[in-house]
C-alpha cells in the first residue's frame, strides 16, 4: 500500500512541480494522470503496483466530492438569481454534446471505412 501511495503521489507531485516551474494552465492532477499512463506504458511502473489503490479511489470517486458540493450552501443567492441561465445552458449544451459527438464519430468512421474499400 505504501508503494501504491508513493507512485500515485509521486505522479501528482511531479504534476505540481511542472505547474510550479512552468505556470502551465493545467490541473496538476491531469498531468499526474498522463504521467502515470506513460509510466505504465513504458513498463517502468507495473500494473499490480498501483491497481489496488487506484481501483479503490476510482470506485469511490463520487464520495470525495461530497464536501465541496456541500459548499453550495454558500452560493444559494447566486443560484437563485441566475437559475434560468444555469439550467437552460446546461440542458441545451448536454443534448448538443451527446448528438454532435455521436455524429462526428459515425461520420469519420464511415469515411475512413469507405477509403479503405
Amino acid at each position: 500500500m505504501i508503494r501504491q501511495c508513493a507512485i500515485l503521489f509521486g505522479c501528482l507531485a511531479a504534476g505540481e512541480l511542472l505547474v510550479f516551474l512552468t505556470g502551465i494552465k493545467l490541473p496538476s492532477s491531469i498531468i499526474g494522470m498522463l504521467l502515470l499512463t506513460l509510466l505504465l506504458k513504458l513498463g517502468w511502473v507495473k500494473l499490480e503496483w498501483v491497481k489496488g489503490l487506484s481501483d479503490f479511489l476510482i470506485a469511490n470517486l463520487g464520495f470525495f466530492f461530497v464536501p465541496p458540493g456541500v459548499a453550495l450552501m454558500l452560493y444559494f443567492d447566486i443560484i437563485k438569481a441566475q437559475f434560468l441561465p444555469i439550467v437552460a445552458a446546461t440542458i441545451v449544451s448536454t443534448a448538443l454534446v451527446l448528438v454532435v459527438t455521436g455524429w462526428t464519430h459515425q461520420w469519420v468512421r464511415n469515411k475512413s471505412a469507405k477509403n479503405q474499400e
Partner: peptide, 9 residues
C-alpha cells in the same frame, strides 16, 4: 487529486 491521477490506470 490522487483519484484523478488514478484515472491513468
Amino acid at each position: 487529486k490522487p483519484a484523478v491521477v488514478a484515472l491513468g490506470v
